[in-house]
Design a protein around this nucleic acid. Structure first.
Length: 753
DNA sequence: TCTTCGCGGTATGGC
DNA sequence: ACCGCGAAGA
């Protein structure tokens, strides 16, 4: 059995609890430490046993990095090098943090509760709750998600009369976000302005910062930046956290940005106990301003650092690893390394070209069905990855028709639904009376006769007086220009909410939420709609109450901190994206390639492998080919045994059919590791697979073009065919500029001469 | 002030 | 194909 040969790798959580000393860490430390090292390979052991000072673990895909992290934490405790409360372990996603917490818990028992095992963002939020006041925020600050912060940004642009047509708010925000992650504040940014666009962005940046502070709100970037600010500005704060976290461990270090790097530096520069684990080949968050230089330059930044390389892979077959290596080796921004495994051989990669996304979806569904029937492959061992969320739709429809249960990770999020956001806005306003965006969201929802004009007057008054918006609402009669009817409506709303605020400190979150939904008449308004949609929305709110109830119970058990339950609840869910949630036990898993990082599946399909989709056009325009290639590497290395990649000749985008060429990454796979299939062009729905072992030659169906033919292209002129590829693709080298271009033989304005 | 209709932008990726 | 926003009408 293949499985028996595999050492436990990253995403298998269940087995860890069965080994070592489970939840009973009562034996002497030396024995415990010994046992922790027992089934590690040499470099893994070296990393776990590392003493004081910086440590870089270069961990290739599937090389057991989570194992090294969790065992090192346990080892630090067992040898007495650290107490549980001195550990800060950081990951990038909540999911990864939960998994790490679980696995550490399995090794060390309940002392995991004293550790901070969490994401960068929630660690920062926790630290800021204690020290935000020094920066002019109050501890009940609200965390704005993307849409909230974009709202705020739009308001600022309006106020400055910046035309959103000429300056798209998203572009401005990305500019601001980039500056923040480089720790460039508004005035420094303004001082360095160049183009008119940047000048405009600088102006918006400054006002945005001001209004965010007044609203006592932080966006995701602020959480990092403000924490860095607090640590840099206040010796006392810095010393306190340095003393607290004697050992800092960071997972996925290749995804850190400059602010995060600075944060780690501030926390660890004194004792130097920083362990980072990462793999530059899996750096795929450049768009979030991650800086791959952080991992590439680690030894330069921390000169005494010890470096350990983990290159033995315990996950995939040699075929899959060879394919992954072949792709990623084309990148320049990397250290030389090569994954290897004791599992030689393996099935070849299956590459399939299909007519369009519908055929692709049917092909995938049918293949999953076949694997289940013929090879006994379980659905929960199958995952389908795609580059963009939009690609899941057609596949979902098809899986439903095939009656194949599936679950989608990520994508449309529960917490982004309007009604859920409304409910949360009510709660936010209770905690943070200055929260303008939440106020604007709910003041007239349900309708209370407080329209746009009145809202504008309230906001303007808050801005000019500097009073929290809630204060302004409480003194509506003082707001210039507000009509009598509006004053009455605002006052009533204010009164209702004041009543709810009075309960906020003591009541469990669930009952508070229920009271909010009732007394605000929100549920009543939904019921009055009498539509299926409204019913669904009410159900979602019920689910949110359920989430709150769960939170209350957990808090009861764990005896929450010094923060009010409501504050803690809000913080938790504002940093919460779609977790695996109710992970379905017998379903196929669908997700983006980005979401797939850190996971593994027996059988993996990567769909939509077309140039322009993957690598994505936009990424290529931004010079991100290497990052896209790394994403491909991530996708390939998720597979344990079987890997499929598919692309389509045509795909609908914005309702428009686009013609595609296969992804350049497909061509980078060594032919001897792959098998190609192609559906007959023009066969419509009833296609028949033709199989061609080894790829490239002679699959071209209709066109008579062959390698070596001289051709003329309507705009590129004379050229010669250098290769013929599946799907009617010919590669032509043109004499005009000497460049090679891929063309669709059927559609390109090209003829033989 | 609220509702409806139609247009246009949108859909790389996520804490 | 879908959602959000603005214009126009009730």
């Amino acid at each position: 059995m293949l499985g028996a040969m595999l050492q436990e790798t990253d995403s298998e959580t269940s087995r860890e609890g069965l080994e070592d000393f489970g939840g009973a860490p009562t034996e002497p430390g030396a024995n415990r430490a010994e046992r922790l090292l027992a089934d590690l390979n040499e470099p893994q052991r070296e990393a776990v046993c590392h003493g004081e000072g910086p440590l870089l673990v270069l961990a290739g895909a599937g090389s057991g990095k989570t194992r090294v992290l969790t065992h090192r934490i346990a080892y630090l405790l067992a040898t007495g090098a650290a107490r549980p409360g001195e550990i800060l372990a950081i990951t990038f996603t909540n999911k990864a943090a939960n998994e790490m917490r679980e696995r550490v818990g399995a090794l060390v028992g309940r002392s995991v509760r004293a550790m901070w095992v969490t994401t960068f963002h929630s660690a920062c939020a926790r630290m800021l709750r204690a020290d935000a006041e020094r920066l002019g925020y109050s501890r009940g600050f609200t965390i704005y998600d993307e849409s909230d912060s974009l709202r705020m940004l739009k308001r600022c642009m309006e106020e400055l009369h910046v035309d959103p047509k000429r300056y798209p708010p998203r572009a401005i925000r990305s500019q601001i976000s980039g500056a923040k992650n480089q720790l460039v504040d508004a005035s420094a940014y303004a001082a360095a302005q160049g183009s008119i666009f940047e000048e405009t962005a600088a102006e918006v940046y400054a006002l945005y910062e001001k209004r965010m502070l007044e609203a006592n709100a932080m966006d995701f970037d602020d959480l990092l930046v403000r924490t860095v600010n607090a640590l840099e500005l206040f010796d006392e704060v810095r010393e306190r956290w340095r003393r607290t976290f004697r050992h800092v461990l960071v997972d996925e270090y290749q995804d850190t940005n400059h602010a995060q790097y600075r944060l780690l530096q501030l926390l660890t520069s004194e004792h130097g106990n920083l362990m980072v684990v990462g793999d530059e080949d899996q750096s795929v968050y450049g768009f979030r301003h991650a800086d791959i230089r952080n991992i590439l330059d680690f030894e330069r930044d921390f000169p005494e650092a010890e470096v350990v390389k983990l290159e033995q892979n315990y996950r995939s077959t040699q075929t899959i690893l060879s394919a992954a290596n072949a792709v990623v080796e084309r990148n320049r921004e990397r250290r030389p390394k090569r994954l290897w495994t004791e599992l030689s051989g393996g099935e070849p990669l299956q590459l399939s070209e299909l007519a369009d996304e519908h055929e692709e979806a049917r092909w995938v569904a049918a293949e999953i069905e076949r694997l289940g029937e013929e090879d006994g492959v379980r659905r929960e061992d199958v995952a389908v990855f795609y580059r963009t969320n939009a690609m899941s739709r057609v596949l979902e429809d098809t899986l439903v028709r095939y009656e194949l249960p599936y679950q989608v990770i990520g994508g449309t999020k529960f917490y982004e639904r309007a009604e859920v956001k409304d409910a949360i806005a009510y709660l936010s306003l209770i905690v943070n009376p200055a929260d303008q965006v939440s106020f604007a969201r709910i003041v007239n929802s349900p309708r209370r006769g407080i329209g746009k004009t009145s809202q504008g007057r309230l906001a303007a008054h808050a801005n000019t007086t500097g009073l929290p918006i809630w204060e302004v609402a409480g003194r509506a009669e003082e707001v210039p220009g507000l009509g009598a009817a509006a004053i009455k409506a605002v006052s009533r709303f204010h009164q209702t909410m004041e009543g709810l605020r009075a309960q906020a400190d003591s009541a469990p979150v669930a009952s508070l939420l229920e009271a909010v939904l009732c007394e605000s008449s929100y549920l009543e308004a939904l019921a009055a709609e009498r539509t299926i949609e409204a019913e669904g929305r009410a159900e979602n709110l019920e689910e949110l109450v359920g989430v709150a109830g769960e939170f209350d119970v957990n808090r009861e058990l764990e005896g929450g901190g010094d923060v009010s339950p409501l504050e803690e609840f809000l913080q938790q869910i504002s940093l919460y994206t779609e977790q695996d949630g109710l992970s379905d036990e017998s379903a196929i898993t669908l997700m983006t390639l980005h979401n797939a990082k850190g996971l593994e599946y027996d059988t993996v399909f990567v769909i939509g492998c077309e140039d322009g989709a993957f690598p994505h056009m936009r990424a290529l325009e931004e010079g991100g080919e290497e990052e896209e290639r790394r994403l491909c590497y991530v996708g390939i290395t998720r597979a344990r045994r079987r890997l499929y990649m598919t692309w389509t000749r045509e795909r609908r985008l914005f309702g428009r059919a686009e013609r595609n060429l296969p992804s350049r990454f497909v061509d980078e796979l060594p032919a001897e590791l792959t098998e190609r299939h192609s559906s007959a062009p023009g066969a419509g729905t009833a296609w028949e697979a033709e199989t061609f072992a080894g790829g490239a030659e002679s699959l071209d169906p209709a066109p008579a073009l062959r390698t070596g033919d001289d051709v003329v292209h309507a705009s590129f002129g004379d050229g010669v065919v250098t290769a013929v590829e599946p799907g009617g693709v010919v590669v032509v080298r043109f004499s005009g500029d000497g460049a090679e271009r891929k063309l669709m033989a059927d559609y390109a304005p090209i003829r033989k001469r």
